[in-house]
Design a protein around this nucleic acid. Structure first.
Lengths: 187, 187
DNA sequence: GTCTATACGAAGATAGAC
DNA sequence: GTCTATCTTCGTATAGAC
């Protein structure tokens, strides 16, 4: 198949970024984890590791938007709840070991181009959440501000849950966000 | 002086952790940034890099608690505002390049012992905030929950601000937290 | 498109003089 | 307590056959 190997590599990179960070995502481990052939790295990613990581960040962003689109037309608290489910699931399925690949890039990448891509994903996340909330009647200003609050809080909650190795702290933050979503000003 | 070199090394490690992450904190750079003698690394830290990083995490935790103690007896919104100032200052003075060293460890350290130390600092942070809030009349349960929310949200807001290279997103999250602090249930 | 072998550089750790 | 030189390991990247 045309790009199956490439996709496996990107998949492995996402998982490693989420658990071990940027410099911790070793190409050797990507190969080992995915069973992809090592010799093909530079065939699929002529730019080497940075290009592979860039693809991983981009795919993470696309998946997030895709997931959020399933909540079009829902009430604000359902939209926010669905958004949080994305991260809660990541924590649970990994036994609190995996977090956000994009956050990992932001706090440790040394290449500006990768930080730019991370920023683009965060912006797309906030924009999508803003769009859904305002689509369900929340004022645009409140929707935009709350989207920023939700994205920041969720990212931080994921980190805390990883440090604590417990979902409890995440749920405390998540409940607070859903509560706030219920009282957002509407048009 | 007895431990001046050691302290400079820990200082440099904190700064590098905050900007480049765990694996990005190279001993070579610690030496270069602090002017400390390379040959002394293993004299002061027989355990090598991990021991130096552990000292950096611990010192970060102590500084945080020290800072928070200056707000004993203040109103909830002042306590939370002071807490947020700690992080806002870190962002501003570094031109949005530095974040939280403890978060950096959590998302990229491969050594369990370091994650444990990071968790201890997060716990101490939450405990101190809880203590101050309940000391100013907030119910213990609300104080504990809100402390978790504030720490998580602030951590996430710092990451977002770094990605955006702008303090704006941090302030949106900070304002929301201060607003919430005004309406916490009291005894 | 896949694979092996290898070059190259970097980073952490060590030895031992001063 | 400081310093230099060096060792070892490892990770990325390349070359070139298949």
């Amino acid at each position: 198949m045309a790009h199956n190997t490439r996709e496996k590599m990107v998949e492995g990179a996402i998982e490693l970024l989420a658990t071990k960070g940027f410099q911790g995502t070793l190409l050797t481990d990507v190969i080992e984890a995915t069973g992809a052939p090592r010799g093909s790295i530079y065939h699929h990613f002529p730019g080497g590791k940075d290009e592979m990581i860039a693809a991983a960040v981009d795919l993470t962003g696309r998946r997030y938007v895709e997931w959020m689109d399933t909540f079009v037309g829902a009430k604000p608290e359902m939209i926010v709840g669905g958004f949080l489910q994305f991260w809660r699931h990541t924590l649970i399925r990994s036994d609190m070991k995996a977090g956000c690949p994009v956050l990992a890039i932001t706090v440790s990448a040394d290449v500006d181009e990768l930080i730019d891509r991370a920023r683009a994903v965060f912006r797309a996340s906030r924009a999508k959440l803003t769009e859904l909330l305002s689509g369900s009647g929340v004022t645009v200003d409140a929707a935009a501000k709350f989207a920023t609050i939700a994205v920041a809080s969720a990212e931080g909650a994921v980190v805390l849950a990883r440090a604590e190795r417990s979902i409890e702290v995440f749920d405390i933050v998540a409940d607070n966000l859903v509560d706030q979503a219920r009282t957002l000003p509407t048009n």
